[in-house]
């Protein structure tokens, strides 16, 4: 009984929240419509009414305009995000001891996969070098406004640290002279790099490129799996097992094909640049692709060492992974 009541309450609450969501959807649709906008901005004809009603009207209208402005801004932001795929925003660091008064510059990188926007990746940058130089009263120098990656949500298979070191080097070291004496070539090179100009645009571009490549590679792996019919493999296997007794006299070619069937394709490293391929008869292969999806190498190992023929069969002269997908789809 009690659980019934609880369920009912949960149901009702779910209904309430879904209705609220609907309400919000309708609100935003209505309020961003050009006609609504027009109505709001129109000068309302002076009507004869009591002062209090006029006050409430004005207040309501203010609220509506406010909300309309917010929606407008949001719609614009969405438009920018949809078109530019690399947008910035400002954020605030809640830490009371945060550098630069908590000012944070956010980079938002949109990634599209399978005709859907994924959750964007964020890089949050701050200026940790600014306060020190200002505090000493030396005024602003070139190094003071340098950015540094503060927080980010980039997956660890994207070499963010390397990119940041390349495009967002820190300010030149103060003790470059004394450091140069004892340090070797490496130190000097580091100092040179540190003094270099930062290039946020190139950093963002390079980072986005890496992210998009990564997602493309993941997508290619998924396509490969689909082409090799790995998703529906479970059913097929069950059918095959059931039908095995009846089809004892199946042709040589079917057997051959079954042996040559791929049973698994999985990314073998963090960046999905290497794929492990497994055949039904126990052969395993490793496909290495470049950042952009060109096939670098394919090695297939069978029971008696390397199986060159299987490798050739799979690739068929393809130079890109997409070609392999096409081949597999055609074969199936």
């Amino acid at each position: 009984m009690e659980s019934n009541l609880d369920d009912e309450i949960a149901d009702l609450q779910a209904k309430v929240s879904s209705l609220k969501t609907q309400l919000r959807v309708h609100t935003s649709t209505l309020i961003t419509a050009p006609s609504t906008r027009q109505l709001l901005t129109q000068q309302q004809p002076q009507q004869k009414s009591s002062k209090s009603t006029q006050d409430t009207q004005n207040r309501d209208r203010d609220r509506l305009t406010n909300s309309a402005d917010q929606h407008q801004a949001h719609a614009q932001q969405c438009l920018y995000r949809a078109c530019a795929s690399l947008t910035t925003f400002r954020a605030r660091d809640p830490d009371p001891h945060a550098v630069d008064g908590g000012a944070v510059l956010g980079l938002r990188i949109e990634v599209v996969s399978r005709s859907r926007f994924l959750r964007p990746y964020y890089v949050l940058l701050n200026r940790p070098y600014q306060n020190q130089t200002q505090g000493r009263g030396r005024g602003r120098e070139s190094g003071s406004r340098r950015l540094r990656v503060h927080r980010h949500t980039i997956p660890s298979c994207v070499p963010l640290a390397g990119l940041a070191a390349r495009y967002l080097p820190g300010p030149a070291a103060k003790k470059a002279v004394s450091g140069g004496e004892k340090g070797g070539d490496g130190d000097r090179a580091k100092d040179q790099r540190r003094g270099k100009e930062q290039d946020l645009a190139r950093f963002a571009r390079a980072l986005r490129r890496e992210l998009v490549r990564y997602h493309h590679r993941l997508g290619v792996v998924a396509d490969l799996r689909k082409a090799a019919e790995l998703g529906i493999e479970k059913d097929a296997e069950r059918d095959a097992e059931r039908g095995e007794e009846e089809e004892i006299t199946e042709g040589e070619s079917t057997l051959e094909r079954r042996r040559n069937r791929l049973v698994d394709i999985t990314p073998a490293d963090a960046g999905a640049k290497q794929l492990t391929i497994e055949w039904a008869d126990g052969r395993t292969g490793r496909l290495v692709m470049s950042d952009d999806g060109d096939i670098v190498k394919l090695v297939v190992l069978g029971d008696n060492g390397r199986d060159w023929a299987a490798g050739r069969d799979l690739l068929g002269g393809a130079t890109r992974v997409e070609d392999v997908i096409k081949r597999l789809t055609a074969l199936a």
Binding site: S17, T21, R24, V25, S28, T29, T32, Q70, H71, H74, A75, Q77, C78, L79, Y80, R81, A82, E110, R116, F117, R119, P120
Partner: peptide, 15 residues
């Protein structure tokens, strides 16, 4: 609810 997808195609003003 919690997993805000934040797709730019969602025009509803995020709370």
């Amino acid at each position: 609810k919690r997993g805000r997808k934040e797709t730019p195609l969602d025009l509803v003003l995020p709370s």
